[in-house]
C-alpha cells in the first residue's frame, strides 16, 4: 500500500504546518483585533509585552470586517479588544452588543469625556481633524470660513474631495446631521457636489496633490495626511505639501469636525484583565506620544503635547458633539450621498 504511506506522510506534514499556528501555549495573553497597521504600533506592543509578560496577538483587517467577525464568532470570540480608526465603527460595535462597559479611573483620567463613549463602552486613543487644505498661491485664507461656506458659488469648480464610500466623509456628514439636521446636511452635500473640481477619485493624498497640480484650489481631508506628505520619502511629495496650508473650518461657529481611533473591550473577552492593562497602557503618557505621533495625530491624553508639526498648525476648537452620533447617523449620511450623486 504505497499510496497510504505517501498520502499519510503528506497529510502529517500539512497537519503539523497548520497546527503550529494553532498552538500558542497557555501563557498570559491578550488578543487584539485592529485596523491600524503602523510599524510603530508593533514596537509599542513589543514594549508592553516586555513590561508585563503578556503576549499580544494581533489580527489586522478592515474595521467593518473585524466587527462582522466578532459578531459572527459570538460568545466564543477570540477577540479581547477592538481598535478601529473611526468612532462611528466603535459605535456600531457597541450597538451590536459586541462591547462591554468599563469603569476604570486610569482610563477616565487619560481619556477626556468627549472622546469616549457616553456609557464608557469605548475610549478614544488618537484624534484627527477633517479640515480644509488650500493652495497658498491661489486662496486667501480670509475667503475661508465654515464648512457651510463650501456650497457658496465662489467655490465652483474648485473643491476636491474623495468618494462618499469613504468612512471619513460619512462621519463628516453624520456630524452635520447631528448639528444642523438632515435637510441642511442634504443641501450641503448637494452644494459641495455642484462645486467639485472633478468627480471624486483617489484617496486624501490624491486630493492634496491635485491642488498642487492645479485641478482644484481647496480639498477636504484629514490632518494627518498632510503630516505624512511633509515626511514622505518622495521629495516631490514634500514639495507639494509645502505649497499647502491647513485651515480649521467653523472656528467661530460649531467647530472643526474631529474623529478618533479608539479601543473597546469585547463583551465576551476571555482575557479581560490583560485587556484592560493594555488599554491603560495605550492611553498612558508613555505610549500616547508614540501612538499618536506614528500617524501624525493628536494624542487624547491631555498630559501629552502634540508633536511639533501639529503644534505649529495651532490649536483649534473641535465640534462639541458626542462622537457616538457619527455611528448613529452613518447610514443616513451614506444614503444622502447617494441621493445627491456624490460618487
Amino acid at each position: 500500500m504505497r499510496f497510504l504511506n505517501k498520502g499519510s506522510i503528506l497529510l502529517i506534514v500539512i497537519l503539523v504546518f497548520s497546527f503550529t499556528t494553532l498552538i500558542m501555549g497557555a501563557e498570559e495573553e491578550v488578543n487584539l483585533y485592529t485596523n491600524r497597521h503602523y510599524d510603530t504600533d508593533k514596537l509599542l506592543l513589543d514594549k508592553f509585552e516586555e513590561k508585563t509578560n503578556i503576549k499580544v496577538n494581533v489580527l489586522k483587517g478592515g474595521s467593518d470586517e473585524l466587527i462582522e467577525k466578532i459578531d459572527r464568532e459570538g460568545e466564543d470570540t477570540s477577540a479581547d479588544l477592538l481598535i478601529t480608526a473611526d468612532a462611528g465603527r466603535l459605535h456600531r460595535a457597541k450597538n451590536k452588543g459586541l462591547l462591554q462597559q468599563i469603569e476604570n479611573d486610569t482610563l477616565f483620567n487619560n481619556v477626556p469625556e468627549n472622546l469616549r463613549d457616553t456609557e464608557n463602552y469605548w475610549f478614544g486613543l488618537t484624534v484627527r481633524g477633517r479640515v480644509i487644505v488650500y493652495s497658498k498661491d491661489r486662496v486667501d485664507p480670509s475667503e475661508l470660513s465654515t464648512y457651510g461656506d463650501l456650497t457658496d458659488d465662489k467655490w465652483e469648480n474648485r473643491i476636491l474631495v474623495r468618494s462618499s464610500s469613504n468612512i471619513y466623509n460619512q462621519s463628516l456628514l453624520a456630524s452635520f446631521i447631528e448639528i444642523h439636521g438632515e435637510e441642511w446636511a442634504t443641501e450641503w452635500a448637494a452644494g459641495v457636489v455642484d462645486n467639485m473640481a472633478r468627480k471624486p477619485q483617489g484617496n486624501d493624498r490624491a486630493q492634496a496633490t491635485a491642488i498642487a497640480s492645479g485641478v482644484g484650489d481647496i480639498a477636504i481631508m484629514n490632518t494627518y495626511y498632510l503630516g505624512k506628505m511633509l515626511n514622505s520619502s518622495n521629495p516631490e511629495e514634500v514639495k507639494v505639501a509645502k505649497q499647502l496650508e491647513i485651515f480649521f473650518p467653523s472656528q467661530e461657529t460649531t467647530g472643526t469636525h474631529i474623529n478618533v481611533s479608539g479601543i473597546g473591550l469585547t463583551k465576551h473577552a476571555k482575557n479581560k484583565e490583560n485587556a484592560i492593562k493594555l488599554m491603560e497602557y495605550l492611553s498612558s503618557v508613555e505610549a500616547q506620544e508614540m501612538f499618536a505621533k506614528a500617524n501624525y495625530e493628536y494624542p487624547v491624553n491631555p498630559n501629552v503635547e502634540p508633536s511639533n508639526l501639529l503644534s505649529s498648525w495651532g490649536e483649534f476648537k473641535p465640534q462639541s458633539i458626542n462622537l457616538s452620533k457619527l455611528g448613529e447617523y452613518n447610514k443616513k449620511a451614506y444614503m444622502i450621498f447617494n441621493r445627491v450623486g456624490w460618487k
Binding site: 499556528t21 497597521h37 496577538n57 494581533v58 489580527l59 489586522k60 483587517g61 470586517e65 486624501d204 505624512k228
Partner: peptide, 26 residues
C-alpha cells in the same frame, strides 16, 4: 486572506495592501 486569516498571520499580499491602503505606497 484579509478576512479569514488567523491571529498574527501576515502574507506579502496582505501587508503590501495594508501599506498601500494607508497611503504608504513607497
Amino acid at each position: 486572506t484579509l478576512i479569514l486569516r488567523p491571529f498574527n498571520f501576515n502574507t506579502l499580499a496582505t501587508r503590501a495592501f495594508e501599506y498601500a491602503n494607508d497611503e504608504m505606497i513607497h
